[in-house]
Simulated assay, not measured.
Amino acid sequence: MSAVDNRGGGSPESRLLEVEDLHVEFRSKDGTANVLNGVSYHVDAGETLAVLGESGSGKSVTAQTVMGILDTPPGFVTGGSIRYRGEEMLTAGEERRRELRGENMAMIFQDALSALNPVFTVGFQIAEQFRFRRGMSRKDAMAKAAEMLDMVKIPNAKQRVKEFPHQFSGGMRQRVMIAMSLALDPDLLIADEPTTALDVTVQAQIMDLLDELRRERGMGLILITHDLGVVAEVADRISVMYAGRVVEKADAHSLYKQPGHPYTEGLMESIPRLDMKGHELASIQGLPPTLTNIPPGCPFHPRCHRAEDACREKVPEFHDLGLGRASACHFAEELISRD
Rank of each mutant, 00 (worst) to 15 (best):
M151G: 00
S40T: 14
A252I: 01
I154G: 12
D236M: 11
L184V: 11
G123K: 02
V66M: 08
D339I: 06
R85C: 11
G135H: 05
L291R: 13
Q129V: 08
E313L: 11
M105G: 03
G218Y: 07
H42I: 00
G244W: 13
L213K: 12
D140Q: 15
L49A: 06
L113A: 15
L113D: 13
S169W: 11
N6I: 04
T32K: 04
L49M: 13
E54N: 07
G220I: 08
H42A: 13
M207T: 03
T65R: 02
D140R: 11
L70Y: 13
I82L: 03
A146K: 03
A3F: 08
L49E: 07
L149T: 03
D227C: 00
E128P: 13
R173K: 13
P295I: 08
L291Y: 10
S137Q: 02
L321F: 14
D185Y: 00
E87H: 15
L100K: 01
K249F: 10
N37K: 12
N117Q: 13
S40Q: 09
T121A: 03
D150V: 06
E313M: 09
Q205L: 06
E334Y: 12
H319N: 02
V152D: 05
A204S: 14
H253S: 15
K158R: 14
E94I: 11
E99P: 05
G86A: 07
L274F: 14
V35P: 03
R131H: 00
A112K: 10
P296K: 11
A157E: 05
N293H: 14
S337E: 09
T264N: 08
R101N: 02
V152C: 04
S28G: 15
L228F: 05
I294F: 06
G229Q: 05
G123Y: 10
P194V: 09
D192W: 09
G31C: 04
G297K: 05
V240M: 05
L149I: 02
T264P: 04
S40R: 02
R306H: 12
F120Y: 15
G123E: 07
G324W: 04
E54S: 01
D192Y: 02
L116G: 12
V161Q: 01
L335Y: 03
Q174F: 10
S60H: 10
H279M: 07
S181W: 01
G10M: 02
M67A: 12
R101Q: 13
L223K: 04
P296R: 03
L36N: 07
F164L: 00
V230A: 14
R15S: 09
N293D: 15
